[in-house]
Simulated scan of single mutants.
Amino acid sequence: MESAALLKAIIENAIDGIITINGRGIVETINPSACKLFLCTPEDVVGKNISVLMPQPYKAQHDEYIHRYQQTHDPHIIGIGREVTGLRTDGTTFPFRLAVSEVDFAGRKIYAGFIHDLSREKEAEEQLKDYAAHLEDLVEQRTQTLKNTVQALQQAKEEVSVSLEKEKELGHLKSRFVSMASHEFRTPLSAVQLSASLVEKYAQPYDNANIRKHVAKIKNAVGNLTTILNDFLSLEKLEAGRVEPSYTPFDLVKFSEEITEELQMVAKQNQNIIYQHTGTRSIVNLDPNLLKNCVINLISNAIKYSGENTFIEFNTEIADSNCVITIKDNGIGIPDTDQKHLFEAFFRAHNTGNIPGTGLGLNIVARYTSLMDGRIEFKSDINQGTLFTITFPIS
């Protein structure tokens, strides 16, 4: 009696559904868990064929399944241990896993079916399938987007290649034009310069101030045009990558004195260039042509942007590890807002007014300095002047 009570308690409280049927498929018992799964009461199914809890086509075939099982004892015939489908009393179905045990009870055979609900697992599987399908759609979309992007990049690459080829062609045309124009302009400018000098010479006996004044204007204009041509030629060579430093040992003091003497001749009235060298050494190993362009450009700017009756300080110094060149004037200075753009090509400060210039000089100076591994710095205040410092490392 105690064993029977224990078995009944286990069946009644089992989480899975348990149904017993006889050899003819008639339901004899059903536990609460099975009633909950099939949405029925014991009265709804006890005494009836188990097929009432099966959807078609299993419903019509169940009796045949039992008969064949009794003949062969093959568990696969009635789906033992396999996933099957149950029919609830409201007409809905649900999946479950079935395990069947054959039991001898009071001299007869009964079959106990253990029903494990798979609804949640199936829902999870469906969700995973939906999620996987969604991921596949996303992957397909992303793949297509990536293909489109790659095609667009390839097209853009081809367009850029075409543009680069056109730009290269334009660069060659520009280079040839600048070289040709510079050559063609230099010849008439030289002729104008020579003719102005001859006019000045032939006019000396007349001692006419107006002739001297206008000849000076002609020479000044020719000088300005020559400077512009030189700037454009230098920029064109830099842009084409055709400028390489040619290092040569030379006497910096003699080099600087010659530049000072040359530029003093074009300085304004009572404008004096004061040169001074510091240190016992005078030999440096730099490119004299590039350095001369830098120094002449900076001193020419000092002359141009300073007034008459002023001093321009030009200093050189050779120390143990570097060579320092400074040019200082007392001119119009550089506005604070313009200073960050000072070394950009074609840039001119807003306070230059009608003073002629291309805006290329300082850009060329900075690039020549960099080619020789040097650096250029400056300090400037409005109407107080400007100090430029070029520093080169020396070994």
Rank of each mutant, 00 (worst) to 15 (best):
T92M: 04
H62M: 03
Q61E: 13
S306L: 01
M54I: 03
F314R: 00
S179D: 11
A106W: 09
G223Q: 07
D336M: 10
E344C: 07
P356L: 10
K8M: 11
A240S: 04
M265L: 04
S234T: 02
A14F: 08
V162G: 10
E126M: 15
L7T: 03
R375D: 12
L37A: 12
A99W: 02
N270W: 08
E184K: 06
P335A: 00
H73T: 00
Q269I: 11
A221N: 09
A34Q: 09
N315P: 02
Q155W: 02
Q155F: 02
G23R: 11
D74Q: 02
L128W: 00
S197D: 09
T310E: 08
I312R: 01
Q384P: 07
F105D: 07
S256W: 01
A99S: 08
I228D: 09
N297Q: 13
S370R: 15
A99M: 06
P335K: 05
L360Y: 05
S51D: 04
M372W: 01
A132L: 13
I325L: 15
V215N: 05
L135W: 01
R142P: 14
I390Y: 04
P75T: 03
K328F: 10
K237Q: 11
Q269M: 08
D130P: 06
A203Q: 04
K166V: 09
L189M: 11
N220C: 12
P55I: 07
Q339H: 06
L189V: 10
H277F: 02
I10L: 09
T93G: 06
H214P: 01
D74L: 00
R176Q: 04
L164T: 06
G91K: 11
S380L: 07
T145V: 13
N31M: 09
Y69T: 05
V27I: 15
T93R: 03
T227C: 12
V365E: 13
F250L: 10
V46N: 04
L164V: 09
C294L: 02
E236I: 01
F177E: 02
R242M: 00
E239K: 00
L233N: 15
P356K: 09
L153C: 14
D320C: 10
H341D: 13
V103W: 08
I218F: 06
I11D: 11
L135D: 06
R186T: 03
V295T: 03
T227D: 12
F94S: 01
V324C: 13
K147T: 10
T93C: 03
K8N: 13
I364H: 04
I80G: 00
G223T: 09
N289S: 15
Q151G: 07
V52N: 10
K292Q: 10
Q264I: 02
V266W: 03
G333V: 01
L146E: 13
R82S: 13
I19L: 12
K109Y: 03
H62Q: 03
Y247V: 11
A221R: 06
E123A: 09
V253F: 07
D104E: 10
Y65N: 01
L6F: 03
D117R: 00
H350P: 06
